[in-house]
Design a protein around this nucleic acid. Sequence first.
DNA 1: GAAGAACCTGTGAACGTTCACATTCGCGCC
DNA 2: GGCGCGAATGTGAACGTTCACAGGTTCTTC
Lengths: 340, 340
Amino acid sequence: MTDVAARCGVSYQTVSRVINNMPEVAEDTRARVLKAVQELGYRPNMTARHLVSRRSTVLGHVSFATGLYGPSQTMLNVEEAAKDAGYSVMFAGIAEENVDEIRRAVNELCAHRVAGILIHLPLEIDLSMLRNLCQNVPLVAMDSDLGFKTSAVLVKQKSGSRMATQHLIDLGHRQIACLRASLAYRAARLRYQGWLSTLKAAELNPGPCVEADWSSRGGFEAARELIKNHWGKFTALVVANDQMALGAIRAFREAGASIPDEISIVGFDDIPESGFFLPPLTTVQQDFVKIGKLGVQCLLEQIGSGGAGLRTYTVVPTFIERASTAPAPRARLKLARNDK
Amino acid sequence: MTDVAARCGVSYQTVSRVINNMPEVAEDTRARVLKAVQELGYRPNMTARHLVSRRSTVLGHVSFATGLYGPSQTMLNVEEAAKDAGYSVMFAGIAEENVDEIRRAVNELCAHRVAGILIHLPLEIDLSMLRNLCQNVPLVAMDSDLGFKTSAVLVKQKSGSRMATQHLIDLGHRQIACLRASLAYRAARLRYQGWLSTLKAAELNPGPCVEADWSSRGGFEAARELIKNHWGKFTALVVANDQMALGAIRAFREAGASIPDEISIVGFDDIPESGFFLPPLTTVQQDFVKIGKLGVQCLLEQIGSGGAGLRTYTVVPTFIERASTAPAPRARLKLARNDK
DNA sequence: GAAGAACCTGTGAACGTTCACATTCGCGCC
DNA sequence: GGCGCGAATGTGAACGTTCACAGGTTCTTC
């Protein structure tokens, strides 16, 4: 900056004013400075600016580094929304579901004096230690419960799962199984509870339930277990995500069960591939773009207001009907009789 | 830091020495300072440290924000490798394939004075303007060609595609089609060339070739076009990635063609789901963990050496045989005869 | 017992900005 | 013609660190 100033015969302050385009600078001076900036390839030093002005244009984002569709997608959308608002994003991935690693990651972000932190850790563990760690740093929990009061963007997982289950009930299914993920995850627990409560509300007994690890392999193996131990005791299956649903589809096909004729399957997430499964998957869509945008908006509001007034935003998932669900075998028979 | 110093009755410099655990500080002083640090919840200010020491512990990563498996996975692995080396990562996503946006993103990273930048933009466009933009900033191109000499991590896309094509030839296929992605992408072009050159080497005429956009939908539609216009003129298909292969599989199944009996398909990437397609997909695996780790390692080397000595690392993909490929129909007949 | 080494600690400057304030200049007005 | 005013520009300090060096002990050594 001093170089630029020297070249134009003005003071560094004038250069600063031009860079931040403040009004009180003469038109020709501004032009001269801009030219010198161009020629010298001057770039403001964010670090120095940040240090002296005591406000940062960097947002922190903490999330699982699993490579799963949801987290990756959220991350991308957070970055885009941040960029649109003039912020950069520092990403910290959590490889293990481990409180110490989370602490480390958040600490790191705080050391960099980010303007605020988005925490996307949909775990059922107590993260209230973060309250002390981030005394003056605005926080937003994304689809997560940190164990203390924060601003948050919450996805109505339970109502998504209810839509899925109700859809199957409406199709005449009475024995509906569940392929859930570990209840250590918020989304998994809520989706599981949605399944359970919807069945209860319809006065149906819950079908068999098996657990897997969000992956296709997990879904495949869990579905095989379901087939081996509970075959005949269910005509439909609610699955915790689309990847697991893919694995389940393969397991049923290999067992000779036709989908959706003998068994209906509904997934969760609506990954871009699920419309091309065999059969195309009926599922519940999460709008990750909206989640990311709302998260950033919420964080920015809080940064603006100096941390006052926590807000909670809600994102409602959408039910997407494709070809992996059909009327229950018995219902189909009845339907056929009615047709005559 | 001054607070900590005051509390222990030492100077800020001594605190600094404890924080950076330098050797020349008495054991009991160190303990006292550490205790005060703990009590006051002191965290070093990376911004100030960075400003004065003129070296950063932040790496920049520029990549497509498409949500595709490859880029997301690379990003995650880069972050993890960087973390292991004590660095943080600032991510800049590119939404449009647009030189101006790339310039903006890199400029932003440079303004933050990152220690180095990883560029993962596998495009066939001239990015030589980056050379001037990043005068003194170490660069590493990941699976990309920037149009000027840089350190790089390159994936042997062409040899991956050759393995896939050769596998089909070895199975007796003589008419092999190609479902490629836009040649504006480096990977797409190299994979396409691998297909072409392998056929040439085997003295076979290239089968029909259609282009799609990396997505399942694109693959589905392109495969339908292939079926409509070229049915009977190919018995096998090399596809640019697994997502497109999934779309293609659905198109063939819907057209009544059985896989792999009537048509063999081989994908690229080995996404975690591809082992659970129907049928499980034969594909070429890219080791994204290795790509990410090598990229960071390469960048760190360059940062260490002050930008001297550009190196190129190479990653070789692995062929994964599953159930979507089988001997060509004619070859199968011959095989059957031999069996008798 | 003095010189020097080894160890520990403190001081002043610098990094590249912004902020609050001071200064200069030209102009209109009574 | 002096006064006040607004517009344009400059000055000094500060942000929280590290770096280079200087100072002060204590211990060793001849």
